[in-house]
Design a protein around this nucleic acid. Structure first.
Length: 896
RNA sequence: GGAGGCAUAGCUCAGCUGGUUCAGAGCAUCUGCCUUACAAGCAGAGGGUCACAGGUUCGAAUCCUGUUGCCUCCA
């Protein structure tokens, strides 16, 4: 019977089998009907992406939510897809071309895009295939891509719409420039990193000095005031070549006399003025600030204020250009120049000192390159205006119309909204949606969907412009400018026709995402939702943590500390990996991933598998062939588990409602392992070679089935396998679409004292080193025999007890405390009366101490008068119980 | 520099509007068992001044204040 089922669970073949069964039966496909809808849109992974542990966690959670909803009778739809990821993808394509010996600069835009699409078709979207291994129950028929034609069209329409509403403008501004990606970035795409750098103190000679004096001056400048220099401090000495002024604080006594004078930039001897502004911090560096409007945001603002020249000495790749004036540096990378110019300055005597300095530099989220502030013409969304038009963007989150889990993320969200900056949406790339702006040769432009429309608009808006050679804007839109439409565009919400999906599935229910893209994506989807749908895009946002290794380092490819999820699945099974990821990942908390957790998951699967083997291997006979007391005992066991199950289910549902999935999973784990396997199955298991009665067997199978249903969202594969095998199923049935159990009423049968008796006897056996095979005789002293009497069968079976007597004398027995009762066990070995007495005395001592503390409370008038009456009553009960117990213990002392 | 959060067993975390479900869970550790479902297992056990110092209260892990340490986000 059990011979055919293998002793250990092997997931591989089972997982593949059921996943293709689910696909071929289209259980994950959803279309609008009369049922209540439930929808989730996937945070679209980069089309260049490969599954990493973060995806595993994120998508497991989405799958749990989706599968639960589906089983609870909702029309569940989880929409998958990928993001075109402008910068990342373009970088990959450029790299592929380089390997083939092709330079991007040699290609036309059209040719480049042809290669890019080719790349996308070939390598893009591997990640979606990997998700299938995880068991993701996405509606694959709905797979979308942010750059597919209809989604791109929506993006363009939205741009035009916002432009027409006056929410988009084009302006020359300082942006975050990525010299590697050669594009502008939004503030959100810049990551600040701590670096150890150097603070260079550089002398600028005042123009009163003659040239020869400058070159020969080597004397130390201990007193700035009387020297013929000013000294400025900078971490970026190469930018001195772009200096336009020096600035001091007008209140700074040290430098008042210098205001209005002129200084010379080292090497190139450009004359710059010393100006005064309160912006300068007197206590930082030397108190003199070099002003470099082209290469620093604050300096740029200062430059605007004082009408300073903007001298941009960097190329788009971050190399120095001819404006740097010094031949030694032109054409070289800014970091190489930084090193070299420091040496040269030092040799020429311009360096006063160099200090070690810790500062933060911005780097590109996608390429890692150090960001250069750069003055360029870019397209912007006016966020303040946008929010003024859509106040719900903040309100809905603050009043929980859109619920954040965990809720404290609301603060972060509010802070961002309150300090919002305009969104730079243009990128100097080719892979993406090209900006629908058209320029005439004389510099006018219109925003229009097509060239034909553009010509029309020119005729009206700029009738004098020459429209012979209109040129479309070269730039594309920020990737997030398409992702923010995702919950709308995947349901074709921007199309004129086919509105059934959007009407039915929007707003979506849950969004599961990482906290770091709250601003990039979550906030902007909320904006788009209100702007174009007039409604929130989702009701709940579940923020997952970041997956870290045991040393709390973020898992990353470069550190090599991230296991390959597919290897893990191959080794432990998808169910095991899912369980391992979820078991310790409360919402918002980082998860410290450790392979031992996945092992725990695999072990759990194996445990379930063996319970299945046991149940499947039972032989069954009709109830009529069994003695009444055995049937009664089994009935008690069934009732007990039924109660346990419903109690636990209610709690599990509560936890799930609060999105505390890891706690819910832990409860299921304990329900199955401890309650069902360790207790229930042991209680009803017939002695070897004997059969089980039919009615108990039926119940046992029914319980097993229910347990599988509850566990299925978390561990879909093994639960399907067992659900299919444990009883007869029809073709086309699946646990995926089976009804989730409801909490039912039950008769509560407390086996508390019985279980405690069993445990205490086992403990005694353990501590005395007595074999489990040796049976004991016991006497139970209690005034509640009804708590034990019906369960004698169970006590005998599980604790190996041969006979049970009630309230008889028990001379020379060992006494055990069970709740307020005493259980006496007859041991066949000599018992140490002195040691026993000591043990009992200790217990009495403890109880007296305990009573004393209760008495303190009870004699405290303020407690008795202030505390709730039931609480006072409880304390009284405690005292009574303790008294009764002391009495019993004293009796057994006397008996020794 | 600004905002928010955290500190409970070796590790990861539960502990709601103060009071026997208040010191809990899982893992890890230790002891004894290959007891015919499972050694990926079974039966037990030992681990904590609830970061520190004050305060409020009859009563504080829980509320308040300060200190220290750590984390995240923003500039």
């Amino acid at each position: 019977m059990t011979k055919e089922i293998s002793k250990t669970y092997s997931p591989q073949s089972i997982e593949d089998k059921w996943y293709s069964y689910w696909l071929s039966n289209k259980y994950f496909h959803a279309k609008p009907d009369e049922r209540e809808p439930y929808s989730i849109v996937i945070p679209p992974p980069n089309v260049t992406g490969v599954l990493h542990m973060g995806h595993m966690l994120n998508n497991t959670i989405q799958d749990v939510l989706t599968r639960r909803a589906r089983m609870q009778g909702k029309n569940a739809c989880w929409v998958p897809g990928t993001d075109h990821a402008s910068i990342a993808t373009e970088a990959k394509v450029v790299q592929m071309l380089r390997e083939r010996g092709i330079k991007k600069s040699d290609l036309s835009r059209e040719d480049f895009l042809k290669y890019a699409w080719e790349w996308k078709e070939k390598y893009g979207g591997i990640i979606l295939e990997q998700l299938k291994k995880l068991g993701a129950s996405c509606d694959w028929d709905r797979t979308r891509f942010t750059m597919e034609p209809s989604l791109s069209e929506a993006v363009i329409d939205v741009f035009i719409d916002l432009y027409n509403k006056g929410l988009i403008y084009r302006e020359l501004r300082m942006v975050n420039w990525d010299p590697l990606g050669k594009t502008a970035l939004s503030d959100e795409e810049v990551i600040f990193k701590d670096v150890n750098s150097k603070l260079y103190y550089i002398k600028y000679h005042l123009t009163e000095n003659s040239k020869s004096e400058i070159l020969n001056s080597n004397h130390p400048t201990s007193n700035i005031q009387h020297s013929k220099f000013v000294v400025i401090a900078t971490t970026r000495p190469e930018t001195i070549l772009a200096d336009a002024a020096i600035c001091v604080n007008p209140n700074d006594e040290r430098f008042k006399h210098l205001i209005g004078k002129k200084a010379l930039v080292p090497f190139i001897n450009r004359e710059i003025e010393i100006i005064a502004d309160e912006y300068v911090a007197m206590d930082f560096g030397t108190g003199c600030l070099k002003v470099t409007p082209a290469h620093d945001k604050n300096d740029y603002e200062l430059g605007k204020k004082y009408n300073l020249e903007v001298i941009d000495i960097l190329t788009e790749e971050g190399f120095l250009n001819e404006k740097a004036q010094d031949e030694r540096y032109i054409g070289k990378d800014r970091f190489a120049v930084r090193k070299q110019i420091a040496i040269d300055l030092e040799e020429a005597g311009f360096i006063e000192k160099i200090e070690e300095y810790k500062n933060q530099v911005g780097t590109s989220e996608r390429t890692g390159a150090v960001i250069e502030p750069r003055l360029t013409l870019q397209w912007w969304v006016d966020m303040k205006k946008f929010l003024a038009k859509n106040p719900q963007v903040l309100d809905a989150v603050m009043n929980d119309e859109i619920k954040f889990h965990p809720a404290n993320m609301k603060n972060t969200y509010k802070h961002w909204i309150d300090n919002i900056k305009d969104w730079c949406i243009s990128r100097q790339l080719w892979w993406g949606q090209q900006i629908p702006a058209w320029y005439s040769e004389d510099g006018n432009f219109v925003v229009a969907k097509t060239e034909v429309e553009a010509i029309e608009k020119f005729r009206i808006q700029h009738p004098t412009s020459n429209i012979q050679h209109l040129k479309q804007d070269e730039d594309v839109l920020d990737t997030w400018f398409s992702s923010w439409l995702w919950p709308i565009s995947v349901f074709d919400g921007f199309k004129e026709e086919g509105k059934e999906d959007i009407k039915y599935f929007y707003p979506t229910n849950d969004l599961v995402t990482a906290p770091e893209i709250m601003f990039f994506w979550v906030a902007r989807m909320i904006m788009a939702g209100y702007e174009w749908m007039g409604q929130k895009p989702f009701s709940n946002v579940y923020y997952t943590g970041i997956v870290r290794d045991k040393q709390r380092r973020k898992m990353s490819k470069s550190l090599g500390n991230s296991p390959d999820p597919l290897d893990l699945i191959a080794q432990y099974g998808a169910d095991g990996v899912r369980m391992g990821m979820l078991i310790c990942s409360p919402a918002g908390n980082d998860i410290l991933f450790d392979e031992s957790q996945v092992e725990q998951g695999r072990n759990f699967a194996n445990k379930i598998w063996n319970a299945f083997r046991l149940v499947k291997g039972l032989s069954i006979k009709p109830d009529t062939e069994f003695a009444a007391d055995l049937l009664a005992s089994n009935k008690i066991s069934e009732q007990w588990f039924e109660a346990r199950f419903n109690l636990a289910l209610a709690e599990i549902e509560e936890k799930c409602k609060d999105y505390k999935l890891s706690e819910a999973l832990m409860m299921i784990y304990k329900l199955i392992w401890d309650d069902y396997c360790a207790w229930y199955l042991e209680m009803i298991k017939p002695v070897y070679g004997e059969a089980l009665n039919q009615s108990t067997y039926d119940q046992t199978v029914a319980f097993f089935e229910k347990l599988m249903l509850v566990l299925h969202p978390f561990m879909p594969f093994i639960t399907e396998e067992i659900w299919q095998e444990i009883t007869e199923r029809k073709e086309g049935e699946s646990i995926c679409v089976a009804a989730y159990p409801n909490v039912e009423t039950y008769n509560y049968t407390s086996l508390q004292n019985t279980f405690e008796t069993i445990s205490k006897i086992r403990e005694l056996r353990n501590s005395k080193g007595i074999s489990p095979k040796e049976a004991f005789e016991i006497v139970i002293k209690t005034n509640q025999t009804e708590l034990y009497e019906p369960n004698q069968f169970l006590i005998k079976k599980l604790a190996n007890v041969s006979s049970i007597l009630f309230n008889e004398d028990a001379p020379n027995y060992v006494s055990l405390s069970v709740s307020t009762d005493q259980v006496f066990v007859k041991l066949n070995i000599e018992i140490d009366a002195v040691a026993e007495a000591e043990k009992i005395n200790k217990e009495i001592e403890y109880l007296i101490g305990f009573m004393a503390s209760v008495d303190v409370k009870l004699s405290n008038e303020k407690f008795v008068s202030n505390a709730k009456p039931e609480l006072v009553e409880k304390e009284r009960q405690k005292k009574e119980d303790a008294l009764a117990k002391i009495e019993v213990l004293k009796q057994s002392l006397a008996g020794l």
